[in-house]
Design a protein around this nucleic acid. Structure first.
Lengths: 67, 67
DNA sequence: ACAATATGTAATGTATGTTTTACATGGTGA
DNA sequence: TCACCATGTAAAACATACATTACATATTGT
C-alpha cells in the first residue's frame, strides 16, 4: 500500500504534527504511515480523506498481490 | 463505521464463505465485519471494493465524531 | 553559536484485526 | 426425519495499529 500523504501535506502547507492533530492521532503515527512502516486503520484513512476533501483512493494506492 | 457488505453480497448472490475466499480472509472475519464487531483493515477494505468493483465509500460509511 | 522547528527513530505498552478450532442454530431439500 | 448448508458465536493465539516517552539529527533564523 502506497500513499502520498506527504504531497497532500505539502499542498496544504502543513507539518506532520499539524496534520496529526487535525485527524486525531500522534505525530509518530503520521510519520510511520508516510514512511510506509504500516498502513492506517480504515477509520484513519477516512479521517485523512475527509480532511483533505478527497477520496481514500486519492491518497492510498493498493497493489493487488495475487492475480 | 457502517457497511453494506451484506447488500453487495446479495447483489452478487454469494455467501460469506465465498466472499471471504475471494478477498482472502476467513468466513468469521466477513461475518464479524458485517455484524459490526469491528472494522476491517484498510487493505481488506480495498480488497472488498476491488472485488465489488466499487469505491470504498460505496461499502463503508464513516460518521464524523467530533464537531 | 544558539535556539527553535520539523522530521526520523526506538522501546514499551495497549487496543484492535485476523486466524484457527469448535460448536450451535435455522432453513431447505430429499 | 435426516443431511446439508449458511450464519452466528466464542476462546485462544497472533499480527498489526496506535500512544507515550524519549532521544537524535537536520535546517533555519537570529
Amino acid at each position: 500500500m502506497k500513499n502520498n500523504i506527504k504531497v497532500w501535506r505539502a499542498k496544504n502547507d502543513m507539518t506532520q504534527e499539524e496534520l496529526s492533530k487535525k485527524v486525531g492521532v500522534t505525530r509518530q503515527t503520521i510519520n510511520a504511515i508516510e514512511r510506509g512502516k504500516y498502513d492506517p486503520s480504515l477509520e484513519l484513512a477516512f479521517s485523512l480523506a475527509s480532511f483533505f476533501d478527497c477520496r481514500i483512493e486519492d491518497i492510498f494506492a493498493y497493489e493487488q498481490q495475487k492475480e
